[in-house]
Simulated scan of single mutants.
Amino acid sequence: MDIKEFCLAHGFDMSKCGVALGGGGFEMTELKTSPVEFLTLAEDDFERGGLVALVNATTNAKRAIVSQLDQLLISFGYPSLRWNVPKKIERLRALGLLAPSLLRKVVDMRNILEHEYATPELKNVEEALDIASLFVMSASAMFIPFDDVLEFSLPDLVVTESSVTHISAGLNREPDRVFYTVYAYKPGGPGGSSVGQCEIKSGHVLFEAMVKLSASLMLRYKVNQALGDFEAAYAQL
């Protein structure tokens, strides 16, 4: 049963509900070499100076950026190691995990770093380090921790004794997959009585809209746009 069938089965009208964060502690998947480690190597290379050091600093800045893209995507269940960089960036855009201004800087810097056979200019290497540092640190900050629970609730005036009052969607990770588990609740007990559940798998259009909504609510950034994107994704189902 998909999420729309699930809501219809329980008489829950998503178009009339409000949404809030419900907490949680979702963390990024660890990589063998972390983005921070690549960033540290790049900064150490830059401090040593000289042509070889600048080349190494450029290469490690690029590695820091790409590995951070991968860490975010792998954390949400995407097989991004097989993807090219434009596809990685496009999926992160869909997940709402890159602010547009930072996204543009990362794309521009990637284009500069792709010219590995050109002699790197000092100002370009400095800019690469600044952007890599901003990207890695901002991504890490979002996961201390990432609020992975969304609570959808109906206003009191449309609730009846027999109706589902709210739906809770929690992000889960297992060794081979990442998914939201969605629970429907009716009145009864401190948090209500669960009457059913379903899953939304990583890669589903609503999965991406829900991650984006969580990120927007956490950052209090373009929340209305994220809500609109969620409603549009739900309407597609």
Rank of each mutant, 00 (worst) to 15 (best):
1 M>P: 08
3 I>W: 06
3 I>Q: 01
12 F>Y: 08
12 F>H: 11
12 F>D: 10
13 D>P: 02
14 M>K: 04
16 K>F: 05
16 K>A: 15
17 C>Y: 07
18 G>V: 10
20 A>E: 15
21 L>Y: 00
23 G>S: 08
25 G>D: 12
35 P>V: 11
36 V>H: 08
37 E>S: 15
42 A>I: 05
44 D>T: 05
47 E>T: 13
50 G>Q: 01
51 L>F: 12
51 L>Y: 10
54 L>H: 03
56 N>D: 10
56 N>A: 14
57 A>E: 04
58 T>I: 00
60 N>K: 13
64 A>F: 02
67 S>H: 12
67 S>E: 12
67 S>R: 13
68 Q>V: 00
73 L>E: 07
73 L>H: 11
74 I>T: 06
75 S>N: 07
76 F>V: 14
77 G>P: 01
77 G>Q: 01
78 Y>R: 14
82 R>E: 13
82 R>V: 04
83 W>D: 09
84 N>C: 04
85 V>H: 06
86 P>K: 10
86 P>A: 10
90 E>D: 07
91 R>K: 12
91 R>G: 00
92 L>S: 02
95 L>M: 15
97 L>W: 02
101 S>C: 03
102 L>H: 05
109 M>A: 06
112 I>Q: 13
114 E>D: 13
117 Y>H: 13
117 Y>G: 00
118 A>T: 11
118 A>L: 07
122 L>H: 10
123 K>Q: 12
126 E>R: 14
133 S>T: 15
138 S>M: 09
144 I>S: 07
145 P>R: 14
147 D>Q: 15
150 L>K: 00
151 E>R: 12
151 E>P: 00
153 S>P: 02
155 P>K: 10
156 D>Y: 03
158 V>T: 11
159 V>T: 10
161 E>V: 05
161 E>Q: 09
162 S>K: 12
162 S>Y: 10
164 V>Q: 07
164 V>P: 05
165 T>P: 02
165 T>L: 03
168 S>V: 15
171 L>R: 02
171 L>H: 02
172 N>T: 04
172 N>D: 03
173 R>L: 05
175 P>N: 07
175 P>Y: 11
176 D>N: 06
179 F>C: 07
181 T>W: 00
182 V>K: 02
182 V>P: 11
182 V>N: 02
183 Y>V: 11
184 A>C: 08
184 A>G: 14
185 Y>F: 15
185 Y>S: 11
187 P>F: 13
188 G>F: 04
190 P>R: 03
191 G>S: 09
193 S>R: 13
195 V>D: 01
196 G>T: 03
202 S>E: 11
202 S>K: 01
205 V>K: 14
208 E>D: 10
208 E>S: 14
209 A>M: 11
211 V>D: 06
211 V>E: 05
212 K>N: 08
217 L>N: 01
219 L>H: 04
220 R>L: 09
220 R>Q: 14
223 V>Q: 12
228 G>A: 06
233 A>K: 06
234 Y>H: 10
